[in-house]
């Protein structure tokens, strides 16, 4: 039976009301994308705690930096591409350089924007944001994690960027699940190989791991790398010990999760086969996300194929 899916951006938008209730320092800022970020409840309950700059992302981020300077905790809502690129320098200079306690939320991460096309995709945001000193980069994989992640941002010192897919996801975690920034979650254990991934790809990896197990008996660990930076080095060592590591993300293969993992493997001299899966370094025309994920081999079938190829396992039948 098909599991029920929900939208992480909706979970985040709704949960902002709870966050605002927990701490009066919480305010919300957006450049005309509150509704797109599903902040309707917040708009209803806390209209005096939101600032809308209109379609002006640079001002949104600079303004948020000013609010931080006065002790507030602004959550800035935009699209991943606009906050990381249009307001890139404000993110770096006004937020990161100041080590400001702002949380930048970018929806439409990766190619999840699908038919909106490359202008609204964001396959570069991790590369950009991770390059800023002080900046923590997060990517939630399901609604439960997103909510716990958001709760964890409240007492975190320093700036955070959260990239949020608009492709719905099944719930991977239970409500009792314990979340910690910087520490991976492992929704499926395994010893014959590991898929290190984030965001919507975690559910595809889980499905791929299940099929691989059913068809070959090989057990594949699925590691949810929700914290892209700072990357959990121990989790990479552990994954490498399986001998086969596939790092996958809805992001350009350059500058994303895969290269963070690659750096650890190379620096520590870990003995493992390794492959980076993601968006190849090129622009493609508009299409639905599922079509794109299949094309880039990061959907369930693609991840399965890439993993088995690396392991040299052939499926007969």
């Amino acid at each position: 039976m098909e599991k029920k899916k929900r939208w992480v951006r909706e979970v985040i938008g709704n949960y902002m009301v709870d966050l605002a209730a927990l701490d009066e320092k919480v305010v919300a800022v957006s450049a005309d994308l509150f509704r797109s970020c599903r902040m309707e409840k917040f708009m209803e309950q806390y209209p005096d705690r939101m600032y809308n700059t209109g379609i002006a992302e640079q001002n949104m981020v600079g303004f948020a930096a000013g609010l931080c300077r006065e002790g507030f905790k602004p959550y800035a809502f935009s699209m991943a591409s606009f906050v990381s690129m249009r307001a890139c320098e404000q993110c770096r200079t006004d937020i990161a350089y100041a080590n400001a306690n702002a949380v930048l939320v970018g929806v439409y991460s990766g190619v999840s924007g699908g038919l909106s096309g490359a202008t609204h995709w964001s396959i570069e945001d991790c590369a950009i944001m991770a390059a800023f000193p002080n900046m923590t980069v997060l990517e939630p994989s399901d609604g439960v994690q997103a909510q716990k992640m958001l709760r964890a941002t409240l007492n975190h010192e320093g700036p955070i960027y959260i990239r949020v897919s608009v492709v719905p996801s099944v719930d991977i975690y239970s409500e009792e699940y314990e979340y910690q920034i910087g520490k991976v979650s492992i929704p499926r254990e395994g010893k014959d190989g590991a898929i290190l991934c984030s965001g919507v790809l975690v559910q595809y990896a889980l499905e791929a791991a299940e099929e691989i197990f059913c068809e070959t008996g090989k057990s594949i660990r699925v590691v949810d790398m929700h914290t892209i930076k700072p990357v959990d080095r121990q989790a990479i060592r552990d994954a490498a010990a399986t001998g086969y590591v596939l790092a996958a993300q809805d992001h350009n293969i350059i500058g994303g999760l895969g290269q963070q993992v690659a750096a650890v493997i190379a620096e520590e001299g870990l003995q493992t086969k390794f492959k980076i899966a993601g968006i190849p370094d090129r622009f493609v025309p508009m299409a639905r996300p599922d079509y794109l994920y299949a094309m880039f081999e990061i959907d369930k079938d693609g991840l399965k194929r890439q993993m088995l190829d690396m392991m040299g396992v052939e499926i007969h039948g």
């Binding site: 303004f63 300077r69 006004d94």
Partner: peptide, 13 residues
Amino acid sequence: GHGLSIGAGIAAG
């Protein structure tokens, strides 16, 4: 081009 936005944020704060 950064200061006025930050200033506005401080003023609002």
